[in-house]
């Protein structure tokens, strides 16, 4: 077939996806240790938001330090839908994807007029505003104390809450990965990549750059919303501190630990950032310091992402 290579990206993505599905299924069946299971669940949940951020940062080249806020919007939307509107879980989940997506589009249009460090500042401020609102708008969020409490136990047919959330998160992660892979492998992704290098070039080939940027911001927000809603479902109680500025920075860390060039890096990064602090007991004290130094080192020596640079290094070693 003449174009076999043009579709190789898709095939390659399909294989990784299959591998991921099998890996998550095996873990889901074999992991009996509650603690290990919870680490995997948290990793999967954060990976969804990190994939969204990769689309925005890695592909479109638009930095956001406010991704955690959209996770928060998703979490509160899900909680509100279930507790105050008594909607069933699937409906709440869909609402928690649509609302941040819509909000992302509305905010994205003006805020993406900014670029570079101004965009970083603007989104950081956005995240900070969200935190203040979440901690003060007590009628909806419950503030810092008590926050949201007593979300339903999702266990049914003898399956525990943790097990149900595990499989739900795995499915949402896989769907998110499929959608993201299709977006970046398709013409939308190509348009974004051209846009990252030059908005003029993208516009001159027919890309509506303003719309494309707002759309990718909205999509990233929707991914974050799904992630935040799952986190809310899993934790069953949370408050504004769960979605502070540090969450946005952890999501950034996940992306740069993985890769800025492929969505799979975000999954790797999410697992790394969630697992490491939990494995190293004394790590908690030094967590911020280690994060900071890691970020500095990665940006100095591997600015397209640590995972990606290591992978390239290994490949070039093995081929020579």
């Amino acid at each position: 077939m003449r174009n076999s290579k043009s579709t190789s990206n898709l095939r390659h993505d399909g294989l990784i996806l299959l591998g991921l599905a099998i890996f998550l299924a095996i873990l889901g069946v074999t992991l009996s240790n509650q603690f290990h299971r919870s680490i995997v669940v948290l990793s999967m949940i954060h990976a969804i938001a990190a994939i969204g951020l990769t689309l925005l940062m890695g592909y479109a080249g638009q930095v956001s330090i406010g991704q955690g806020a959209f996770m928060g919007v998703g979490a509160y939307a899900a909680a509100f839908a279930m507790q105050q509107l008594s909607l069933p879980v699937p409906v709440a989940l869909i609402g928690a994807i649509l609302l941040p997506g819509l909000l992302g589009y509305v905010i994205g249009r003006p805020i993406l007029r900014l670029s570079g460090h101004n965009l970083a500042l603007g989104t950081l401020a956005l995240g900070a505003v969200f935190f203040v609102v979440a901690s003060q708008w007590r009628s909806v969020t419950g503030g810092i104390d008590p926050g949201i409490v007593n979300l339903p136990n999702l266990g049914f047919w003898g399956q525990s809450h943790e097990t149900v959330v595990y499989w739900l998160s795995a499915v949402v992660l896989l769907v998110a990965a499929i959608v993201a892979a299709a977006l970046v492998d398709g013409r939308f992704g190509r348009g974004l990549e051209v846009l990252r290098t030059s908005e003029v070039v993208a516009a001159c080939m027919g890309v509506d750059t303003v719309r494309a940027k707002s759309m990718v911001f909205a999509i990233a927000a929707a991914f974050a919303g799904a992630s935040g809603a799952l986190l809310a479902l899993y934790l069953r109680s949370f408050n504004a501190n769960t979605f502070g500025v540090s969450l946005s920075i952890e999501l950034l860390m996940m992306v740069i630990i993985g890769s800025l060039s492929t969505i799979w890096g975000a999954i790797f990064g999410a697992f790394a950032i969630i697992i490491l602090p939990n494995l190293l007991e004394s790590f908690d004290h030094a967590k911020l310091l280690v994060y900071g130094l890691t970020m500095v080192a990665v940006m100095m020596f591997a600015p397209r992402g640590l995972g990606e640079t290591l992978l390239r290094f290994v490949r070039s070693r093995s081929s020579s």
Partner: peptide
């Protein structure tokens, strides 16, 4: 550069 200074801030 933005990420670098954020990294320094975290550290």
């Amino acid at each position: 550069l933005v990420m670098l200074t954020i990294g320094v801030a975290l550290a």
